[in-house]
């Protein structure tokens, strides 16, 4: 059985939003969980965070970085993906924390809407801080304005909002007010650096780890990460963990097991795409 992409759109530069018909996922999806997608028979299984769920539809938002995500980005509304499994992973710890700050970096911003909604309905005051390199890479601003009590936008180059990093805003907020819980979701290096801001105040800080996965169900150990000196499987024990316990260097090193293969795979794909493109023009 294949699953229909009901709506596919590019919502920022090289960032895509898909609504996929997958009731088994959408009906049970909670904040913090993810899906595993396989596009076709020869495809790799890749994990993508659940960004929203509505009726039978589940939303994913992804950036075209390598073969699979670039190939995925060529699908159009009405196309199908062969497999979508989920929801996977532990849901975020939703309860009445008080003052929550949610930080999204780059495509990690996509993880915030579902989380913000859940935290707000649990009675929290939610501040969103989203950051990207420049204005063209910002996403879901309008939606997050609705979902959060307050939304701060940052860009590295100052093309929109605050000129600087979400970490700068977080530091300021920590000085100004009492913050009970922080979520930081984005590239590993961004999560590592940003979460340093909450170490002095020992503010509870969650990050969503993104090691390389295969099954996403706890069966292979590909996704193992070290948390407080203990090995955990991010797909079943996480993906959210206490930021202050994460072995970041190991995570970042394990994200780079296959650089040569990733390059080969992408080049192969792009070459093939060019060739197919030529055929179209004939």
């Amino acid at each position: 059985m294949a699953y229909k992409v009901e709506k596919a759109s590019e919502i920022a530069e090289n960032i895509f939003e898909y609504w996929i018909n997958a009731p088994h996922v959408s009906k049970n999806a909670q904040a913090g969980q993810f899906v595993v997608i396989r596009i076709d028979e020869k495809g790799e299984r890749i994990p993508l965070t659940i960004s929203a769920a509505k009726g039978d539809l589940v939303r994913i938002v992804f950036m075209g970085v390598g073969k699979t995500t670039k190939y995925l980005s060529t699908l159009k509304s009405g196309d199908y993906v062969l497999d979508i499994a989920g929801p996977l992973g532990h849901p975020s710890e939703i309860k009445k924390w008080g003052n929550c700050v949610l930080i999204g970096g780059g495509v990690g911003i996509a993880c915030l809407p579902i989380l913000a909604k859940a935290l707000k309905s649990a009675g929290n005051h939610v501040t969103g801080i989203i950051g990207s390199r420049n204005e063209k890479l910002l996403l879901l601003e309008d939606e997050l304005k609705e979902d959060c009590d307050e939304l701060v936008i940052c860009t590295d180059d100052g093309s929109k909002g605050f000129h600087g990093f979400p970490a700068d805003i977080l530091k300021k907020k920590l000085e100004e007010t009492n913050i009970d819980c922080v979520w930081i979701i984005g590239p590993a290096i961004m999560m590592k650096i940003t979460s340093m801001a909450t170490i002095p105040s020992k503010t509870k800080t969650f990050v969503s780890l993104n090691p390389i996965m295969v099954d996403g169900t706890g069966m292979c150990g590909s996704c193992r990460v070290t948390i407080g000196g203990e090995t955990k499987f991010a797909c079943v024990d996480g993906p959210e963990f206490d930021a202050h316990l994460v072995d970041w260097d190991e995570l970042m090193s394990r994200q780079r097991i296959y650089p040569a293969q990733e390059k080969e795979s992408l080049e192969n794909f792009q070459e093939h795409q060019c060739r197919c493109g030529e055929h179209h023009h004939e």
Partner: peptide
Amino acid sequence: LKLNHIVGRSIP
């Protein structure tokens, strides 16, 4: 046969 269904997650 229902593939891609993780019981406990896709099936509460």
